[in-house]
């Protein structure tokens, strides 16, 4: 129950934010962030049972939708990472993510996701591959690794940006920017924690969802804060810097 509510509210937040940004996206302001939000929307939609079943049914009912979900997630986090790196002046992180190591990590994660998917018996649409995992012991192990591979790249990108976020949070920039950096950092840490999911005892499975969606919510909140800050800054003209008003 809590899990479903968390999923739908995360989706609602993402959708609202994306809708609210349509006017500025049409003006050509910061389209990448708009695309990231649309990708996130798609990813969340694909992780909720009802829409997943509908879409996967359309794609043949062999859970290809789950692979699509992984790649949508990769794309969203890649573009979000680039924007964060550019915005927070993290030239080193940007070069790292677009360099051999960063791209290699993306390719490796993608390859592992595809190979593991092909090794599974994936017939029968099931959000989160729950029923696929229940089919056999072999499938359960494969699904576990498949999920881990799908979380690896996002965690990798966000961890690479964590230093820049912490640096911005501790800077003397406007409070709303620092708040947003804190929110992005919390979201990133949550996404990194998802790598530890295999260590969570089966009985506490709902924690997986809580950590996962808290992560996404904090990332989106971080973006919203920056957006709000920008609008507020545009509305009121900049005050004169101290020291020149004498």
């Amino acid at each position: 129950m809590i899990v479903t509510a968390l999923q739908w509210s995360t989706f609602a937040v993402c959708t609202l934010v994306a809708l609210a940004r349509i006017p500025s996206a049409r003006r050509g302001e910061n389209r990448p962030v708009f695309y990231v939000l649309v990708l996130l929307m798609a990813a969340i939609l694909l992780s909720i049972e009802e829409p997943y079943d509908a879409i996967d049914g359309f794609l043949g009912g062999v859970n290809v939708a789950n692979v699509v979900l992984r790649f949508v997630g990769f794309a969203a986090v890649f573009f979000l990472g680039l924007q964060i790196a550019k915005g927070f002046s993290a030239e080193d992180a940007r070069r790292f993510l677009t360099g051999p190591v960063g791209i290699g990590m993306g390719v490796l994660s993608s390859a592992v996701v595809i190979v593991l998917f092909l090794m599974m018996d994936t017939a029968g649409s099931s959000a989160g591959l729950v029923e696929v995992a229940a089919k056999s012991g072999r499938n359960r192990v494969l699904v576990e690794y498949y999920g881990a591979a799908g979380r690896l790249y996002p965690a990798f990108v966000l961890l690479a940006l964590l230093p820049a976020m912490i640096r911005t949070a501790g800077s003397r920039l406007p409070l709303i920017i620092r708040g947003s950096a804190v929110s992005l950092a919390v979201g990133s840490v949550a996404m990194a924690l998802t790598l530890g999911f295999p260590l969570i005892p089966p009985g506490l499975g709902c924690w997986r969802f809580v950590i996962n969606y808290t992560g996404i919510l904090f990332l989106v909140l971080g973006l919203v804060l920056i957006w709000v800050g920008r609008m507020a800054a545009k509305r009121r003209p900049r005050s004169q810097p101290a020291g020149t008003s004498e």
């Binding site: 924007q83 915005g87 002046s89 406007p174 920017i177 947003s180 957006w227 920008r230």
Partner: peptide
């Protein structure tokens, strides 16, 4: 000292603009 303060403020302003530009 005033020049240093003003330069720092200008730098922070530029950083803020960059964040608005790329993430706002």
């Amino acid at each position: 000292a005033l020049g240093k303060t003003l330069r720092r403020q200008e730098q922070e302003q530029a950083q803020t603009e960059k964040i608005w530009e790329n993430l706002g």
